[in-house]
Simulated scan of single mutants.
Amino acid sequence: MEDLRTHYHYFSNEEGDGYEIYSCDFPELKGYGDTYDEAMSDLRRNLKHREEKSMEAQPLMETAIAAYDKKDYMVAKSIWEPLSATNTDAMVNLGTMYVKGFGVERNISIAFSLFERAAAYGHETASFYMGGMYENGIGVTADKAEAIRYYTTAAEANMPTAQLKLGILLRDEDVLNSMRWMIRAAHSGEAQAHSLLTYVSNMSEATDINVAFRMMDESSQRAKVEMVIAENLAPTLASDGGGVELVNYIGGDTPEIWLRYLGACSGCHLGPTSTAGMILEQFEKVIDKKIVIYLW
């Protein structure tokens, strides 16, 4: 626990002076002491006790999951309900039962409360469910900002579906992060992200490298990319009522060019033999084949 993230405050009252410390990851756990070190030791003892309780719960969790899979919901509920006081997986599983009405009367309010508690501890599945509830107004007033906040927790825990959700929700207000999450989702194997995002590259055919381009600083390289868009791509795409804009440029051994479709091109998810192929060809003339282009 050497990397334990904590907050503390010093207090003084009729009973004396002392310190209170709580864990950032488990804010309900606190440590108290006359000195900072005593309070930290108390917090570590409480965290260790929580960890031991979690390990004790594992066999029970497995029994409950087996019962749930057999549709013996009453047994699953009898295990998850007491464990849900402290175990985040139990909170999520019990909440799922209340969403579906399996073994209990369907109750979105109870499910919301359980998911909210688990999400407060950083549980990625609970955070994803909370994102969905806020996005769609299930059990709560729809709130896009809250949906994004919860989806972000799940996305940062490498949940591809949450990354996809962020890519879609942020598209009109934060294009850079929208594409960043969409690319991560696609690389994680998320099927819808693959269908929305176009990836083109001829890296496997790359032989000669444009040394002069790679010797430029990144801002000069980016300026070259902007020039290709303005002089080579914009006139061609404008004739069909479309266009592209540069969202991000990442230099290096294999430069990445992130582009957003505009106008009539918006919503196009085309293969490398059509518009995407033409765009790649234009950049290869200025750079070389060892580049990657993402279009959305």
Rank of each mutant, 00 (worst) to 15 (best):
D3I: 15
L4R: 14
T6F: 15
Y8H: 15
Y10H: 14
Y10A: 13
G16E: 00
E20R: 13
Y22H: 14
C24V: 14
D25K: 14
L29Y: 05
G31R: 05
G31K: 05
G31H: 05
Y32Q: 01
G33I: 03
E38G: 10
A39D: 07
R44T: 09
H49E: 12
E51S: 10
E51D: 12
E56S: 10
E56P: 00
Q58F: 06
P59H: 11
M61T: 13
I65D: 03
K71P: 00
V75R: 13
S78K: 01
S78P: 01
P82K: 14
L83M: 03
S84K: 06
T88M: 10
L94Y: 02
G95Y: 02
T96L: 11
T96P: 01
M97W: 03
V99M: 14
V104D: 02
E105N: 14
R106P: 08
S109E: 15
S109T: 14
S109R: 13
I110E: 03
I110T: 12
A111V: 05
F112L: 09
L114V: 04
L114D: 00
E116Y: 05
R117F: 07
Y121S: 07
H123A: 10
H123M: 11
E124T: 07
A126P: 09
F128T: 12
F128E: 07
G131E: 06
G131M: 05
G132D: 08
Y134Q: 07
G139N: 09
T141E: 15
T141L: 15
A142G: 15
D143E: 12
R149H: 11
R149Q: 07
T152M: 05
E156P: 06
P160F: 03
T161N: 08
Q163P: 08
Q163L: 10
K165W: 00
K165L: 05
K165T: 02
K165V: 01
L166W: 01
G167I: 01
I168H: 03
L169C: 02
L170T: 01
R171G: 00
R171M: 03
D172S: 13
L176E: 08
W181A: 06
M182Y: 00
M182G: 03
A186D: 11
A186P: 10
S188K: 02
A191S: 12
H194T: 08
S195H: 09
T198P: 00
S204T: 07
T207M: 09
N210R: 12
V211Q: 15
M216R: 07
S219V: 01
R222N: 08
R222H: 04
E231H: 10
E231Y: 11
A234D: 10
P235G: 07
P235M: 11
S239V: 14
G241M: 11
G242T: 03
V244T: 13
L246C: 05
Y249L: 05
G251R: 04
D253G: 08
T254C: 03
E256I: 14
W258C: 06
R260W: 00
R260A: 02
Y261T: 11
Y261E: 06
L262P: 04
G263M: 01
C265M: 10
C268Y: 12
C268I: 12
H269V: 12
T273I: 14
S274E: 11
A276M: 06
I279T: 06
E281W: 09
F283G: 10
K285N: 12
V286L: 11
I287W: 04
V292Y: 04
V292M: 11
Y294R: 08
L295G: 02
